[in-house]
Nucleic acid binder design. Sequence first.
DNA 1: ACCGAAGTCAACCCCAAGGTTGAACAAGCA
DNA 2: TGCTTGTTCAACCTTGGGGTTGACTTCGGT
Lengths: 126, 126
Amino acid sequence: MDDQLSRVFSALADPIRRDMVARLAVGDATVNELAEPYSVTVQAVSKHLKVLEDAGLVSRSRQAQRRPVHLEAEVFDLMTKWIERYRQEAEQRYRRLDAVLAEMAAEDPNPAQTRVPQTRVQGEAS
Amino acid sequence: MDDQLSRVFSALADPIRRDMVARLAVGDATVNELAEPYSVTVQAVSKHLKVLEDAGLVSRSRQAQRRPVHLEAEVFDLMTKWIERYRQEAEQRYRRLDAVLAEMAAEDPNPAQTRVPQTRVQGEAS
DNA sequence: ACCGAAGTCAACCCCAAGGTTGAACAAGCA
DNA sequence: TGCTTGTTCAACCTTGGGGTTGACTTCGGT
């Protein structure tokens, strides 16, 4: 895995890790506490935590022998930014397409109205 | 991969696939067009598209021999919903924690056997 | 000073993911 | 009717991810 974005997406691609994030959103927890609900060994959970940590989603402090795991929610912004960017581009594209369709329809007696069609018109690329 | 959420996250964990999504946000494209910028074979790109399609991020229609690829942006909502949910939970937790700490500082002089960590005290799960 | 609890490290197994090559399938065009 | 273009399918290779077991470190409690 190269960049952080890849690491974050990859980290959240696993249901167990997503579940851990969900639990950590409620409150910090230790490795053993996190391991309890699952039918895997605590070593496996430790590995999962390493993945989350490498992605920057989680941090581990030291408290005696315990290593409380803490959710770092800021990294989520990285994803949402990426997602929003392309979602908005896609939406703009829809609007552009609608404009084109409206213009084409302008030759009709029917005044172009916002009849946003869910049509999938493909075929114009680059 | 089990659920759709896993498939979506997993699909976007690959830089090439994210790049494809970025390009498809601008406009539909064919497999060959998508394959051009990369130093991989067109078969590999076809596989990537299958991953994106299985995740619901992309749809392919038929236009003569060509299979124009179209971005389905709605699936993004699935992710953003998931992310926002836990991000907000985490934020609420911060607020609650601040309130609790303030309350403790006001009432309890010094709870037995509890070394007060900086700002992160937790340990209840299950 | 000991023992036990909490976590990590290391070695290993298994399978899925990304890549390749080579053949097959579909559809327009000569 | 071929032939060519676009795309997928199939078989295979290699790497990495998730899982295990077993040994090791680090502390605290007594």
